[in-house]
Design a protein around this nucleic acid. Structure first.
Lengths: 171, 171
DNA sequence: TATTGTTATACTCTATAACTATA
DNA sequence: TATAGTTATAGAGTATAACAATA
């Protein structure tokens, strides 16, 4: 019921559809709704751009942090991304079953599981980073330099809603 | 592991935690990540503010549109919000089982199901709209008038990623 | 006792595919 | 044939609770 961009990778994404003549009755005036819409559009573009690599934004965030912090514990990554332990478990299970990362028992604290990116994970991340660069330039190209600075500055301000707020969900 | 705001309603939300000393290795420089973080913070605030009313943002969007367009079909709402039919079904099932809206077979096209908000749904939406007003003023108070205008204008621009793009997911 | 990871369970959103009933 | 809704199924994120191993 609508024409849209790159649906060519033929997967999973339902995009907003053509005009419906339906009244939004003020829904579009909510800042929360606008933010959702923006996030939804970006998320779709991300998934299309990532394509057959098939990593969600959240999985990407985990891989990214593990890659940048070899041996980090599940709990550390989880709390940095705002996930509880159970959520993190499920996510790491998936990444481990795809052999993109492994758990290793810590030598100094047997309760901890240190996370490491596998060789396959490194290769995939290398590909993925190129896709992400494409995605990032596309979404950033919607703004000029000054707008982009402003947008990033204003977006960051929402973090104060979280009190201390360290890091947040990528998904 | 962190102090945060209003967790008083005692439910479901994991917030970002305290500093971990973990390297983000550039993750925080991604515009998509910043947008995610912002959306996450707003979503958490939404759920806390909505409290025991227990409607997700997406359920809220559906209720809102049905209220503003009595007799609209499932398909119309779904496409306006970027959900496919199956997703819409599950969502309407939940709302119907809570007796917040009902399906009614269309008199003119027996394939269609017209959606109507029930009296209970109207009452709940009245309460919900007050909560949403609180939530909206809180998140908007993070910005001055000029910033808010700018932010809303820039956020809207992401819609162009969706090509034609009519409406988008509230969740 | 407190912490880390684990498992079990559950709810929501998302999506595909196949099906029914209408048109 | 095409469309609206439906059902079944599945993957993913989220969260709670209870538990084991370790500190």
């Amino acid at each position: 019921m609508a024409s849209r961009r790159a649906r060519s990778l033929g997967s999973a994404l339902t995009a907003p559809t053509a005009p419906t003549g339906l009244s939004f009755a003020g829904l579009e005036d909510l800042l929360g709704y606008k933010l959702r819409r923006a996030q939804g559009a970006v998320h779709r573009d991300y998934m299309v751009t990532v394509g057959e690599i098939r990593l969600t934004q959240k999985q990407t965030a985990v891989m990214w942090l593990v890659q940048g912090n070899a041996g980090v514990s599940q709990g550390e990554v989880g709390s940095a991304l705002g996930m509880d332990r159970a959520t993190m478990m499920a996510l790491v299970d998936r990444l481990e079953s795809r052999e993109l990362l492994i758990r290793r028992r810590s030598a100094t604290d047997a309760r901890r599981r240190e996370l490491h990116v596998t060789a396959a994970g490194e290769r995939l991340m290398k590909q993925l980073r190129m896709r992400i660069a494409v995605h990032e330039s596309r979404i950033k190209s919607l703004f000029n330099a000054a707008e982009l600075r402003t947008l990033e500055r204003l977006l960051t301000r929402f973090q104060s809603l979280d009190g201390a707020g360290d890091a947040e969900a990528l998904d």
